[in-house]
Design a protein around this nucleic acid. Structure first.
Lengths: 190, 190
DNA sequence: CAAGCATGTGTACGCTGGTACATATGGCTG
DNA sequence: CAGCCATATGTACCAGCGTACACATGCTTG
């Protein structure tokens, strides 16, 4: 009983040819960040989430920081796109107000994953210039989208209001109902 | 030249009798968190900041989590107290509105240290129930302070607005001027 | 269809961190 | 004022981390 002995040390994975693996790794990184926080995000953790060997991380990325930067950039891009779409679709001010309400109630508050990622990004941005740039570009883009329908000062204020509503709703004991969100937005933009 | 040789290994510190050291350690922890983030907060880093030996950390605290919990509790308490004081001092609605403006422009936006700590707390709270409780208690307290002058729904909305104004101002490329803050608050509470 | 090289895989190394613990010491109590 | 014990100190241990690197393999290109 020794022909094909497979003790334990190295079964050697058969897999190969995995185009787009780099992309999947970035997505896996976002999952890990959302679940364990930036602090708990390691090469090994990401590799496990994507089911690839550790060595694959160092092949595709020069450092963990590079992974984080790409991951957060993707996250911001993804949320900003939804923001853009909702506001582009609005044909007039009334529809724009509705778009803002939907954005807060459904899109932003709807995904705990995205919510956590955003807060993690804010915290990380305080200490990482590259991530700070990502955050700022994202905010500028949101404001620009709002300026399709509102003057610059209002756009900035509404952007802040959205942020506050989302965060406070998410971190508080009781979620704000969409009715409460609607009331707050209308009150501000009445 | 060998009588009092002092090679390098262990000069053995003379210091002793340091009442209130535990308190200082918690403050040191807050400094480290603000500078390096929760991720970069270690026993050794805190000990260095407080100029005490590593062993002192494990004597005063059972774990790093305990340090974090106590530190963030202290931070929340400290910010909430200012909040309470400003709003308690207001004698009528107009003064309450002014108090909110001062809170945002001066107290909250005035301290980068506190700002960073708050965002770090939010991120950590997503994964740590004890910290989530700290955050929620803090928010409940802010709301109660606002309810001295505004109805419950308005209080909640204003609390959210404050959060949004502070965060967006801090993370954006350009700080909001106190004039802009004033305008936004007045617009909402007009 | 050959072979080169981009991609993929396993493992070792050095370092840092949390934690445990053996030891020291001097304020306080009786 | 003696001695106890809360407080204080230094260090060792092990786990997990980032990273480097030697080796494997099979698309792709000519």
């Amino acid at each position: 009983m020794s022909g094909t002995r497979s003790p334990s040390p190295a079964p050697r994975r058969p897999r190969r040819h995995d185009p787009g693996r780099r992309d999947r790794l970035i997505d896996a990184a976002l999952t890990v960040i959302a679940e364990r926080g930036v602090a708990g995000t390691t090469h090994r953790e990401i590799a496990r989430a994507a089911d690839v060997p550790l060595g694959s991380m160092t092949y595709h990325f020069t450092s963990l920081d590079e992974v984080l930067a790409e991951a957060f950039t993707r996250h911001a891009e993804s949320v900003a796109r939804v923001f853009d779409e909702r506001l582009s679709a609005a044909r007039n001010r009334a529809e724009a107000v509705e778009a803002v309400i939907t954005l807060v109630s459904d899109d932003l508050l709807g995904s705990r994953h995205d919510l956590v990622l955003t807060v993690e990004l804010y915290a990380a941005a305080a200490r990482n210039p590259a991530l700070k740039a990502v955050t700022q570009a994202w905010m500028a883009r949101s404001r620009r989208a709002l300026e399709r329908h509102f003057d610059a000062a209002t756009a900035r204020e509404v952007d802040a209001l959205i942020e506050g509503l989302v965060l406070h709703s998410a971190l508080s004991t009781d979620l704000m109902t969409s009715g409460q969100i609607r009331r707050a937005v209308h009150r501000y933009l009445r």
